[in-house]
């Protein structure tokens, strides 16, 4: 089974692109499964089910979505193998720019959209920087020049990635993406594979339920800002 991980800021077009990709792959939908990792709620399952795609959704709730991803992706792969999928796709909503739910050796796709602002690629961090393929959506509503500047700024943070423009509504570009994904590696387990990037190192008192504000309540890993006076 091939595993492909998708990540990207909320509403960048991940679900739309994955659905168009599945169409472009020209294989039976029963051969494909999707795992959706989200924070609190998600309606994506309805959109996948409408197209006949098997989907499982997990909510990280109180946990960092990245920690949640790593602790569940292995089981997701087992589910995929048991279901006899040829391809398993994971969709994660990147909620903080420090996140990058990518595994070494597993094809990683980051989806970002032209509307998010031209400098956004320079601020996203590992989720963009560590991706093998960067899919850019919503090119249909911005100018050519803005698309070019956007792609240029992606190139700045990730010189090696392939940048592919996909229209999440019409599916334009999806067949090119499908062609690039054919090279994804076949796996039978994720055991002992490694993440591409450390998950946020946050074990502080607030992680474990503290709610009060003030230095005396703060323990564990803390980082303080410096404010200049005068």
């Amino acid at each position: 089974m091939k595993l492909i991980t998708f990540a990207g800021p909320p509403s960048s077009g991940k679900t739309s692109v994955i659905l168009k990709l599945i169409e472009a792959m020209a294989i039976d939908v029963s051969q494909i499964g999707v795992v959706k990792f989200d924070c609190l709620t998600s309606f994506d399952n309805l959109r996948y089910e409408e197209k006949g795609v098997r989907v499982e959704t997990g909510f990280s709730g109180k946990l960092c979505p990245d920690h949640f991803f790593v602790s569940n992706i292995e089981a997701a792969v087992e589910w995929g193998l048991k279901s006899g999928f040829q391809t398993l796709i994971s969709e994660s909503a990147g909620l903080c720019n420090r996140c990058s739910p990518y595994v070494q050796g597993i094809l990683a796709v980051c989806v970002i959209d032209n509307l998010s602002g031209v400098n956004t690629p320079r601020k996203i961090g590992p989720m963009l920087k560590m991706a093998d393929i960067v899919v850019v959506t919503k090119g249909d509503i911005v100018s050519q020049a803005e698309r070019e500047v956007f792609a240029f700024n992606i190139r700045q943070v990730n010189t090696a990635a392939r940048i592919i423009f996909v229209n999440g509504i019409t599916g334009q570009g999806a067949s090119l993406l499908a062609r690039h994904l054919q090279g994804a590696r076949d796996i039978s387990s994720l055991r002992d594979m490694k993440l591409r990037f450390t998950t946020p190192a946050a074990v502080c008192s607030y992680c474990t339920g503290e709610m009060r504000i003030g230095a005396e309540y703060q323990m564990g890993t803390m980082k303080r800002m410096e404010f200049k006076t005068g």
Partner: peptide, 12 residues
């Protein structure tokens, strides 16, 4: 290819 269509706007 450079593209130009009715729906395109400047957003910057």
């Amino acid at each position: 290819v450079a593209q130009l269509s009715q729906n395109m706007n400047f957003v910057m």
